[in-house]
Design a binder for these strands. Structure first.
Length: 889
DNA sequence: CCGATGACTTGGTGCAACCCCC
DNA sequence: GGGGGTTGCACCAAGTCATCGG
């Protein structure tokens, strides 16, 4: 791919070539390599520093850009390997040893990279720096990076549309429902979708987008949006025709699930109209119901169609590109590219302390009841009984599958002849009560006691918290082994309630540098399952998932690490690259909406849906997983054709989150969907000729490295970029932040990122309403006082009958104005709260929005980055902090 | 070609820390 | 200072996608 890329406008190139990318951090490789540098101490993240540091950086606001923080660290550099000694200073330096590992790296490679940035980088990584001069050259400019090239960007049009998605979830309590609605008016209930006006920026109603290129629209409920005519696009880049070929044949296999499923709906369904009523109050769990409907197991047969074999050139292409890439890499070795994918080497030296295990089980001796009588359990039996008991107040207790799975596993521990012969006669309440008391006790501890406990824990864990990767100290993500428990699958997971057994050292495989000391096994007398030295992967350890033994649980570095940051950056660069191809891709799939070849037509329609609605790819799932779908696995029943050209989607996506959206589509798409549904049963696959492998193989022909999920990143980021640039006005920081939140929300809606409505949401809203009413009354009184004051009369008494102070009319006017401001603010807050009650903003911020868009916007508009990114996001996005203020996605 | 892995990203939840107002 | 609400973050489940191996 490298190759290809090059052709295009530069921007893209970053991947390979550039070394410069700049800012970033990734340098590690090289720099790091230089072992010497490592000075552990340096790196320690002290929070304080953090702030301090950034201060300049971020705040620097505008002017800043250039100023990059500089290599702050450099100082150390100088040193040579002095390892330890120096560093020692800081107390904690966990890793002491700076050591050893160092050696390895070859000096050569490194050279380059370094990055300036850091600033933001928060503390953590500091890399060594040194280098700078030496090579200095290059990078310095750092900033430049990406930005520039963009010329190309397209503008896309946006459409705004969207709307909401989620429906209200029902509450369990019947009651609640009732009240809820009363207020009703508030539209709260309205599906989000409907709520906001579509176009943020401006247009309203819709439509304005031009050609439709727009971004995805998701609309919730009924809203429909506009239309599109794609024709407009201009095909710039490559003709996609080829696409056709790719397609492939094969029919997909029907997965049959035997189970009937009931679906869990996270929310109740909603018909469009329903609007409101939402029931938010209902605990999620309960919301369910909806039976799902149809579930037919059709099994068998999807109609088999014959496959057509089409040639697939695609594959080859892929291969080829890959290879190319590889080579290029090598060649450039000098530069070191940041890694990059492929099975390439991910690190040179890796030192860490392994993982930490949960403490062994301590029996509490509280006896549960069976048929009303106390039963004695062995510690192992009691441990599992306790896992169940503590979940007595969760919604899992309403799920038969959960109880059944639990019972099966627990019964194995009890043995066939145990007194306890069935779950129905068990009473776990004594254990539950005991547990609640423990919780309460913990809560009652003084803050002193809590602090001590916390410190103890930190002391125990500190050495596990860090790893040294190529000489750079990096935070480890999840170094704690998962404790035993009952599996909490989401949705109607067939395995919920099963016992997740305790993981022991003999279950764990450690991955560490060849020359690094193998972490000592923390449990005396036991040993690791295996120790590997594989530098083509980034995991530090893994064990087999006890629930699904063929799957693994990995220990990786934290999100703030360079390794993760680098791949994050690559992800966004790939999405930006899509910008250069999107028009031709859209033109191509539009053309294929009516092509004869069914496979091609399905690919075209699926791609359209992924692009327009930001749907996930939709891999096949096993029967022992929750029954959820994505684009390629949509069932006939998940899409309803509503004349003249609207499609209503209603399905359970990832995490069994319901996606409900009615959208207007182009007529050819509408017709194609109808054809795909023809002659099939409700539970048959809508795209029977397609699966994610075929779809992605096709996408790769259109753009190197393109896969379905890139569209989500692309559409999310471009939406943010456009909304920010169109919506931001001069004004106060608070207003700008609102613009940001609004854009963030739009993206969350597009991606269908939901959260459960808080149980107290309704109460909170009515409290706010009351408060606003109170303030309005205050204003009324003030107005009366104002009149009186103007006439020289004293003010009225207050509600307690006390005489109020005499104020001048001007003073009263001022008070009225202040109160009005307060009311306005409260009303605004209330609206925001209502709008966001079921929308999760965090997910898109963490995973879909290119942080450089945010950082550049903050710089351009003098918004402190800390107002948008919290501490962990700042650390995670350290690589984006020195972006040029003019950066556009 | 295809299913099985394997590795890594994406996602919602729940609890604790924190914040803010009375 | 207390408690209700918010935020941060750990946790771990659930996706995506590439590669492997037959």
């Amino acid at each position: 791919m490298a190759v290809e890329a090059s052709t295009k406008p530069n921007l893209v190139n970053n991947f390979d070539d550039d070394d410069d990318d700049g800012p970033v951090v990734f340098k590690r490789s090289n720099a790091a390599s230089r072992q010497n540098q490592v000075n552990p101490e340096v790196r320690k993240p002290s929070p304080s520093t953090f702030n301090g540091q950034n201060s300049n950086a971020q705040k620097g606001k505008t002017p800043v850009p250039s100023s990059r923080p500089l290599p702050v660290k450099s100082p150390l550099v100088s040193l040579k390997p002095s390892t330890s000694s120096a560093k020692a200073s800081p107390v904690r330096s966990p890793l002491k040893s700076p050591v050893a590992y160092s050696k390895a790296s070859s000096p050569l490679d490194d050279r380059l990279k370094r990055s300036p940035l850091q600033n933001a980088s928060i503390a953590v990584k500091e890399e060594v720096s040194l280098i700078k001069d030496s090579n200095g050259l290059i990078d310095d400019d750092e900033d430049s990076e990406d930005d520039k090239p963009l010329s190309a960007r397209l503008k896309g049009n946006i459409n705004n549309a969207n709307k909401g998605i989620k429906t209200p979830k029902p509450d369990a309590s019947p009651v609640s429902k009732v009240n809820v609605k009363s207020p009703e008016d508030s539209d709260d209930e309205v599906p989000l979708s409907s709520r906001f006006p579509k176009s943020y920026g401006g247009t309203s109603g819709g439509k304005p987008f031009g050609s439709d290129e727009k971004k995805p629209l998701a609309n919730g409920g009924s809203i429909i949006k506009d239309k599109q005519q794609k024709s407009t696009f201009v095909p710039v880049k490559r003709p996609l025709d080829k696409a056709s070929s790719s397609a492939l044949s094969s029919a997909k296999k029907p997965k049959i699930s035997g189970t009937t499923t009931e679906v869990k709906v996270k929310q109740v369904t909603v018909k469009p109209e329903q609007k409101a009523d939402d029931d938010d109050h209902i605990p999620i769990a309960q919301r369910i119901k909806k039976a799902n409907t149809l579930v037919i197991k059709s099994s068998t047969m999807k109609t088999t169609k014959v496959t057509k074999s089409v040639s697939s050139s695609s594959k080859k292409i892929n291969k080829k590109s890959k290879k190319v890439m590889k080579n290029s890499k090598y060649s450039k070795s000098t530069k070191m590219l940041p890694s990059s994918g492929d099975g390439q080497k991910k690190w040179t030296t890796l030192v860490h302390s392994g993982v930490i295990f949960p403490p062994p089980y301590t029996p509490h001796g509280v006896k549960m009841l069976y048929k009303g009588k106390e039963v004695s359990l062995t510690p192992a039996q009691e441990e599992v009984a306790t896992m169940f008991a503590v979940m007595l107040d969760t919604d899992y207790m309403q799920k038969d599958k959960f109880k059944e799975n639990f019972w099966n596993d627990w019964r194995k521990l009890l043995g066939k002849n145990h007194v306890i012969q069935n779950l129905d006669n068990c009473d776990f309440k004594p254990i539950y009560k005991w547990h609640q008391e423990q919780k309460e006790k913990k809560k009652q501890m003084t803050s002193e006691e809590k602090k001590v406990l916390k410190e103890d824990k930190l002391k125990q864990e500190e050495k596990f918290m860090w790893a040294i990767v190529d000489g750079v100290k990096e935070k480890v993500g999840n170094f704690r082994v998962e404790p035993p428990g009952l599996f909490r699958g989401r949705g109607e997971h067939p395995k919920m309630g099963k016992l997740k057994k305790r993981i022991r050292p003999c279950d764990i495989t450690i991955n560490i540098g060849k020359d690094a000391p193998v972490p000592e096994c923390p449990i005396p007398g036991e040993s690791w399952k295996e120790v590997k030295h594989d530098n083509t992967v980034t995991w530090l350890a893994f064990w087999n998932d006890p629930i699904n033994p063929k799957e693994f649980k990995y220990v990786f570095l934290a999100a703030s690490s360079s390794l993760k940051g680098q791949s994050d950056k690559e992800k966004y660069e790939k999405a930006r690259k899509l910008k250069d191809y999107i028009q031709s891709i859209r033109t191509a799939y539009t053309k294929d909406f009516t092509v004869k070849d069914i496979t091609r037509r399905q690919i075209a329609v699926a791609t359209y849906l992924i692009d327009k609605l930001a749907l996930r790819a939709g891999n096949e799932k096993d029967d022992d997983e929750a029954d959820t779908v994505g684009c390629c696995t949509l069932k006939v029943s998940n899409v309803e054709c509503i004349p003249p050209n609207n499609l209503k989607f209603d399905f359970l996506g990832k995490d069994s989150i319901q996606y409900v959206n009615t959208v207007e589509v182009e007529l050819p798409v509408y017709k194609a969907i109808g054809q795909f549904q023809g002659g099939k049963k409700q539970n048959d696959d809508l795209f029977d000729k397609l699966d994610t492998a075929k779809l992605n193989a096709h996408l790769k022909e259109l753009m190197p490295g393109l896969t379905a999920k890139v569209f989500r990143t692309f559409n999310a980021s471009i939406t943010l970029d456009e909304m920010l640039s169109k919506g931001t006005k001069q004004g106060e920081v608070a207003e700008k932040i609102l613009v940001y939140q609004h854009a963030n929300k739009e993206v969350a809606i597009i991606c269908n990122h939901q959260r459960t409505v808080s149980k107290t949401h309704g109460a909170q809203m009515s409290k706010l309403t009351d408060k606003i009413e109170e303030l309005k009354d205050v204003i009324k009184d003030l107005k009366i006082d104002l009149d009186r004051a103007k006439k020289g009369k004293p003010p009225l008494k207050d509600s307690d009958g006390k005489q109020k102070r005499n104020l001048t009319p001007e003073a009263i006017d001022k008070k009225i104005a202040q109160t009005n401001v307060k009311i306005e603010k409260m009303e605004r807050d209330m609206k925001t709260k209502e709008d966001l009650k079921s929308v999760a903003l965090g997910t898109s911020k963490i995973n879909y929005l290119d942080p450089r868009i945010t950082v550049a916007w903050c710089k351009r508009h003098d918004v402190p980055i800390e107002k948008i990114f919290n501490k962990s996001l700042l650390a995670k996005f350290a690589w984006a902090m020195d972006v040029d203020p003019e950066f556009r996605f």
